[in-house]
Simulated scan of single mutants.
Amino acid sequence: MRALIPNAVTVLALCFGLTAVRFGIAGEWEKAVLAIVVAGVLDGIDGRIARLLKGSSRFGAELDSLSDLTAFGVAPALIVYLWSLQHVPGLGWVIALAHAVTCALRLARFNAQIDDAPQPHKRAGFLTGVPAPIGAGLTLAPMAISFWLEPMFLDDLQIRAAVVAVVVVIVSVLMASSVPTYSWGSVRVRPSARIAALAGVGLFAGSLFSAPWMTISLMCIAYAVAVPFAWRSYARAVRRAAADQPPA
């Protein structure tokens, strides 16, 4: 049972990813994006549940990667293709494939390094490249922004397709790259700021329920802006570690 519960959560994430494709085929775009968001939430808690129950296993890790590829690689690629990229003659499907392929490459690299010694990025509390769930969110960000600002934004099909194509290409490169990105391990909250952080969590929860598309859009924009800062923070951490190392 300790291994079954987290694996069941992983399977639920997989099912929500496939359900998002079903909503996309039916043209229910908001439900499709929300299904991917739910899959991302489930993906974020299955590993923590496994560690809490001491039910981590290699089977669970492989199942998680297969679920991630489906929910955050294949599903977003199909959704953005049906929503906009099909209006890019010739290259639309290729661009959609780029998201799925780079997501698969990222997950394969992650699985290949599971048994390796701690990688430099991980040792410093950073991730290598953009994680698959966040990559899916960034790829679907133009959809969330259009739901938020509709009908003022991305109403023209050709402009929508061009914007989505550029976003998908950039996100695909970031997922397959070795760019250091923030992880929970790199986030530090000072004791004096904990009350403010808790208040921020409450405000975030309230805005997520009252204005979900605005909140999701701003989250995606904030993460994209944070990527260069993560690169700078990692470089600073490397310099600090080199300075603290005793001479040979």
Rank of each mutant, 00 (worst) to 15 (best):
W148T: 07
A199Q: 02
S192Q: 11
I170Q: 00
L203R: 13
P120S: 10
R188N: 11
A205D: 02
G137F: 05
S178T: 13
E150D: 14
H121D: 04
A141Q: 01
I159H: 13
F153T: 08
I95F: 09
A197C: 12
P191R: 13
M143V: 14
A144L: 07
A176I: 04
R106N: 06
T181I: 02
T128K: 09
A117C: 01
A96R: 10
F209W: 15
P151L: 10
M143L: 15
A205F: 08
D156F: 10
L140H: 02
L105G: 14
K122F: 05
A176C: 07
N111V: 05
A144P: 06
G125F: 01
A108Q: 07
G200I: 07
A196S: 14
V164E: 03
A176T: 00
D156M: 12
A205E: 00
V171T: 12
A112V: 10
A165I: 04
W93F: 14
R194G: 00
P131T: 09
V166N: 00
R194A: 14
V187S: 02
R160D: 02
D115G: 03
A98S: 15
A141T: 06
L157E: 12
A124W: 00
V167Y: 00
V163T: 11
W213A: 10
L97P: 07
S177V: 01
A104Y: 06
L154K: 12
A193G: 08
S183G: 15
A193V: 06
Q119R: 14
F204V: 11
L157D: 09
V187A: 07
S177W: 02
A124M: 12
A196T: 11
A117P: 03
V173Y: 12
A196M: 13
L149V: 04
G200H: 08
M152E: 08
R188Q: 11
L107H: 09
S207T: 14
L157N: 09
P131Y: 07
A108C: 03
L149S: 06
N111E: 04
C103F: 04
L138H: 04
A176P: 02
L91I: 12
S178L: 07
K122I: 03
L157F: 06
D155Q: 15
D115P: 01
P212K: 13
N111R: 08
P180I: 01
Q119N: 10
S192R: 14
R188D: 05
A205W: 04
A132G: 09
W93K: 13
